[in-house]
Design a protein around this nucleic acid. Structure first.
Lengths: 71, 71
DNA sequence: ACTTTATGTAAACTATATCATACATAATGA
DNA sequence: TCATTATGTATGATATAGTTTACATAAAGT
């Protein structure tokens, strides 16, 4: 699975540690670390809490554009 | 948990049955049904596949705005 | 040099998403 | 009326998200 660098960057932008984010969204630091490393596939609810804690949206951190036709 | 009526609507807009969507994203019909009913909390990857199948984005179907200050 | 903070990672455990199968109801069409 | 389609829902099994504990490294501050 691919790393989530957008998450890492959004966190960095707020100068928030993995631990601080983990506390804010009520999971362990390991969970945040694993998500950033792409080691697993979080639930949508957790993604939403993370985005809310970082003041961004789901699309900002997790959306992957479908390749679609260009004219 | 709350029903996901946006998902139901997006599916309806494409005249797609739960079964057809389930096939498109490679899960069982029960999984789609449970998500629409709000009976559980799908993974972000599944949400992404669903959105791609329905030509919408994560924010369209799953984002919940944080209440934030108004001036 | 020592302590603290941030991060990576691993292993064993628990909770839960998802599957497979099954049954039930309502609507539609032959 | 009978078959088909769409949907809701339940139960037992399996895969995996997320926890807990633990150890290791690097950077920063004292």
């Amino acid at each position: 699975m691919a790393k989530n660098l957008r998450l890492k960057a959004a966190r960095a932008q707020l100068d928030m540690s993995q631990q601080a984010l983990a506390d804010a969204v009520d999971v362990t630091r390991q969970t945040i670390s694993a998500i950033e490393r792409g080691d697993y596939n979080p639930s949508i609810k957790l993604c939403i809490r993370i985005c809310q804690a970082l003041n961004v949206t789901l699309n900002d951190l997790f959306w992957e554009e479908h390749e679609h036709d260009t004219l």
